[in-house]
Simulated scan of single mutants.
Amino acid sequence: MKLVLFDVDGTLVDSQNIIVAAQRMAFAACGLEPPSRERSLSIVGLSLAEAFTVLAGPKGPIAGLVEAYKDSFHSLRQDPANAEPLFPGVERCLEWLHGREDAMLGIATGKSRRGVAHLLERHGWHDVFSVIQTADDAPSKPHPGMILQAMREMGAQPQDTVMVGDSSFDMGMARAAGVLPVGVSWGFQPVAALAEAGAGPIVHSYAELEAVLTEFLNEPSKISV
């Protein structure tokens, strides 16, 4: 059995608009100038405290920003206009992987466990992922804690584990854990950032990802970490 871990924001879900909007509301609530859209998206993947420390500086009102962001995100999510669509091919890929006898699926995300619970409920994914690691469970990416805990829970070895993500934080976390880092180009960070962070294969569609995962699941030794 091989373990395939997915990031959420920027990998499975196109949540950029609601993330940027919630950040702007949080900064406004704290009387601060909001960051640019590019800068807002550059920290997606980090846990909230670490993300706002980057955006506002270590002397900024981090706790206030975190709480204002949570409140804003929750409020925005009530409006159907702020729905977070899945990227093309996600449902097909997850269904294919879930149907394989040699694959276990997991999530490793900077989202809170409450945020992941909402995602699972919305898409009916309660039985799809065997292990879920969130910002509530481990140190922020790129610390390898999420992956190490996921492997421990599932009895997986590093050579039998792959991390799929769209950020340099995902790639750094995977490298630190000794697992295969697969980057996706449709997320919130440029491909160059993924390559610089040590991504192995970088794919440009879920069809390409399925091809990479097929090779990994069948003969993982052919893809070097």
Rank of each mutant, 00 (worst) to 15 (best):
V116C: 05
L217P: 00
Q78F: 05
G187A: 07
D14N: 14
W186V: 12
V13H: 10
T53W: 02
M25E: 13
R100A: 01
K111L: 08
H118A: 11
Q149W: 09
I132G: 05
D160M: 08
G57H: 06
L97S: 02
Y206E: 00
H118M: 08
E67L: 10
E153N: 05
V116G: 04
V179H: 01
S40M: 04
I107A: 06
A29R: 10
T161K: 01
F87M: 11
L119I: 14
F73V: 03
P85I: 07
G178A: 13
R122S: 13
T53H: 01
A174L: 12
V116K: 04
T53D: 08
D79W: 11
D160E: 13
M163D: 07
P142A: 12
A174H: 10
R113W: 00
V131S: 02
L46S: 02
P139G: 08
A103I: 10
G124R: 02
D14E: 10
A193M: 06
W125M: 07
D14M: 04
S112M: 03
V66W: 14
F169G: 07
V44Q: 07
I19A: 12
A63I: 12
V179Q: 00
S72R: 10
G60W: 08
S168Y: 02
H126N: 11
L213S: 10
A51E: 04
D71Y: 02
E91R: 14
S221T: 06
D9C: 10
D136W: 02
V128Y: 14
R114E: 04
V13K: 14
L86V: 08
I132K: 05
A176V: 10
L48F: 11
A135F: 03
D102H: 07
E196H: 13
M163Y: 09
Q189G: 01
S47L: 03
A68H: 09
L217T: 08
P34Y: 02
Q189D: 03
V54R: 13
A135S: 15
M171R: 09
A68T: 12
D127A: 15
L48K: 15
M25T: 03
S167K: 01
G10H: 06
V54T: 11
S221E: 13
P85V: 11
Y206I: 00
K59Y: 06
L148N: 06
Q78T: 11
P139T: 06
V13F: 05
I132F: 05
G124H: 05
L194S: 06
P201Y: 08
P61N: 14
Q78V: 08
F87N: 07
E84W: 00
H204A: 12
S15D: 05
L76T: 03
G99E: 01
P220N: 09
E101P: 00
R24T: 04
A176H: 04
A156G: 11
Y69H: 12
A26G: 00
S75E: 15
P142T: 10
G99Q: 05
V20G: 08
A197Q: 01
A193C: 11
G57W: 05
Q133P: 03
F27R: 00
A29H: 02
M1T: 15
P190G: 10
I43H: 09
M151N: 12
R24G: 15
D79S: 12
S75A: 15
K222T: 14
D160P: 01
F73M: 11
A29L: 04
M173K: 04
G89H: 00
I107N: 04
V128C: 09
K2V: 15
D9R: 11
V203I: 04
L86M: 13
A108Y: 05
L55P: 02
V8N: 09
P158M: 07
G106I: 11
